[in-house]
């Protein structure tokens, strides 16, 4: 995006590199998450190793202060991060897209009310909203964390959907579709959703990254998935006391988190460049 004026072929190549790098990062994490269902180097609660061992052939990522294998925890963490990301973004997208389109179609009064509602909710940090939901449910579990983060993300998705829908509604092809007798339902499904998804998709990828990080924060605060689950956030929390003696315990989950968030964003960018027909040729 920095040098938009460069020749078209190089922009394309850059788009492809973005796509492939994103695919490798996300693909690797997805693979680790899927494999963790069938196989991990050790059992999660297996305290076979020595305390705080450095990475070695026996323990690829070292061990924690109870002697549990960190690579096993990283794999389970990948699974949890992906479930949280998909779940939270899914919930946030359903609530957000529905209310956003509703607002764009609504009467002036309802539209203003919903827009103000979105703005007020956005002013609260997502993490704070999520903590309130966890508190309201009175129990910390993975499901609660996903629900909480989904609700926390929905106003952002809603606001973007509202603006994008209004933009599309102002286009001539919507008038053309209406004048040929297309019902509003069909217009939303055939014209509005396909035209907002490329823009929304990139934003949802961003939200995915934020959701994964927010879950890590919730777990770090002890409000996420309870102990037997090894989320990356919990790993960071547990490693904080030993960060000077066994830095790998904090660095590795941090790197995993970083790789997933950046990978998702690169992948979304690359996908948009590949599948947007208006850009495909140039």
């Amino acid at each position: 995006m920095s040098t938009a004026s460069t020749a078209l072929p190089s922009r394309r190549r850059r788009g492809n590199a973005t796509f492939w790098l994103g695919l490798i990062l996300v693909g690797g994490i997805v693979l680790a998450g899927v494999v963790s269902f069938f196989w991990t180097p050790y059992a999660l609660s297996d305290m076979a190793g020595g305390r705080l061992e450095a990475p070695s052939a026996a323990h690829w990522a070292g061990t924690d202060r109870l002697g549990r294998d960190l690579f096993t925890q990283l794999m389970i963490g990948a699974r949890i991060a992906l479930i949280v990301g998909c779940g939270a973004v899914g919930i946030g997208a359903v609530i957000g897209v529905a209310t956003g389109i509703l607002a764009a179609f609504a009467t002036r009064f309802l539209d203003d009310a919903l827009a103000a509602f979105f703005d007020i909710l956005i002013a609260f940090p997502t993490l704070l909203i999520a903590m309130l939901v966890v508190a309201a449910r009175e129990e910390a579990s993975l499901g609660t964390a996903i629900l909480a983060l989904g609700i926390g993300l929905s106003p952002i998705v809603g606001r973007i959907t509202r603006i994008l829908t209004k933009q599309v509604l102002g286009q001539d092809y919507i008038t053309a579709a209406r004048v040929s007798g297309t019902s509003w339902g069909a217009i939303v499904y055939w014209h509005i959703l396909p035209n907002i998804v490329p823009f929304l998709g990139v934003n949802l990828a961003l939200q995915f990254g934020l959701a994964v990080m927010a879950e890590a924060s919730l777990s770090y605060l002890g409000l996420g998935a309870p102990p037997p689950n090894a989320s990356w956030g919990r790993m960071l929390q547990e490693a904080q006391g030993t960060v000077y003696t066994a830095p790998w315990g904090a660095i590795l989950p941090g790197l995993a988190l970083f790789a997933l968030v950046i990978g998702i964003n690169l992948l979304a960018d690359g996908l948009r460049d590949r599948f947007d027909p208006a850009r495909r040729d140039g």
């Binding site: 092809y173 008038t175 053309a176 055939w190 396909p194 035209n195 490329p198 947007d276 027909p277 208006a278």
Partner: peptide, 10 residues
């Protein structure tokens, strides 16, 4: 304007 009267993504 036929460019804007047609859905760019269909």
């Amino acid at each position: 304007e036929p460019l804007t009267a047609l859905d760019p993504l269909m």
